[in-house]
Design a protein around this nucleic acid. Sequence first.
RNA 1: GGAGUGAUGGCCGAGUAGGUCGAAGGCGCUCGCCUGCUAAGCGAGUAUACGGGUAAUACCGUAUCGACGGUUCGAAUCCGUCUCACUCCGCCA
Length: 426
Amino acid sequence: MLDLKAIRQDPDKFRQGVKRKKYDPALIDQLLEADEAWRSALTEVERLKSVRNKASEAIAMKKKQGQDASAEIAEMKSVSEKIKELDERVRQLDEQVHEMLLGLPNIPHESVPDGDDENDNVTIKHWGDKPQFSFEPKPHWELAQDLDIVDFERAVKITGSRFVLYKGLGAKLERALANFMLDYQIEKNGYVEMFPQFIANDTSLIGTGNLPKFGDEMFKLEGLPYYLIPTAEIPLTNYYRDEILDASQLPVKFAGYSSCFRSEAGSAGKDTRGLIRLHQFQKVELVKLVTPESSYDELNSLVEDAEDILQALELPYRVIECCTGDQGVKASKQYDLEVWLPAAGRYREISSCSNFEAYQARRANLRFRRDETSKPEFVHTLNGSGLAIGRTVAAILENGQQADGSIKLPKALVPYMGVETITRRA
RNA sequence: GGAGUGAUGGCCGAGUAGGUCGAAGGCGCUCGCCUGCUAAGCGAGUAUACGGGUAAUACCGUAUCGACGGUUCGAAUCCGUCUCACUCCGCCA
């Protein structure tokens, strides 16, 4: 959510910001119009309430002295009715303004490159050497099925399409990656480990910006205002919702492992094979709550924290700075990490790291106080995947494959896996 | 799932025959005083949001005693619904 007061003060800045985000700048003017109507109604009803309060006091005084106050009471009766009507109008207008505000995207940081879509993103870094094969590299789903470490067909029987079940060393690889990623972030980068619930209520989802606009991307529990979380960002960012933190608590750094559930509405026909796009996947998510002045430095270090994992897993990747048109709606600035998938012959997003500035903090009422006497201020929130585990499995399989179909594992995983290669069980 | 109790400011805790209650008192905290150190003592202050106002303060107004709705000229106080917490019973990993 954007700052309404800031929009009033400098509408043009927000018209342009919204436009850069590929939203209609007229939204700002509509908002200001509704805001104006709300404020004038509010001023009027508050004036009437002031009248009423004074009259009530006078009535109380008269009664105490045993005098008759029926004239005043009769007069106030009509005032009260008017207040009731106006109160309702104020409520409606307030709701309208609030909804419009919730529907607006965050505006991009000035440093973000302009662009329409992913083609305008800027590659800012490459890391690692793409593996060279003396044979035609296989896609990860073939490797996995040949090794009998995932089962797509039976997963469909159990649930439906876009689900997968890991088996044997595949299941162990999932678990090993989760442990490795968590251990790394906790021990090396100072994150606090969190294991959240996988179901969150609507208020939490409004707090992070997934509602009201993106309800159809999530699975909702029937008859309840509860959703399966699309990412651990939801519980971790909402952990301190409606609280005022002490400045000494910042930065808050959480690393949380969870399953993530996405309905993948509108992606029919895309990435239908393999581990790339599923209704359920697991992920280690990094979330930070920081002071406003430090948030861009914190974004850089967040990207590095995610890169650490890719480097430790010896996976070639590149870092992309997302252009204004390809950023998430909530983000002020966003970097994506894309891992190399040799069989596909392309890079795929494996982590997305964003600074939301106060966009989420304002929605979730996440504040901090610099010292005892200062006013509460909104924190800045950031998050990034560290990493999406399904796609990491895909990358390890495709990059580590050998001529005989076995998989050479990254050294960092050997202690977690107990083997150096994944081979087909006899 | 059944039965009961409760929800007040940063914390504890008063406050129901409705009327200066934003709310007594205590603790904590901030500032000042005092005391050759420390402790104690004394005085003052100490919520949040929104609107108006201002260069910014000041200031003015409104709202907030779990949430929502109702009664009333007026509600922390009365009525209804909901949420949450605690206790007991049942059930379960």
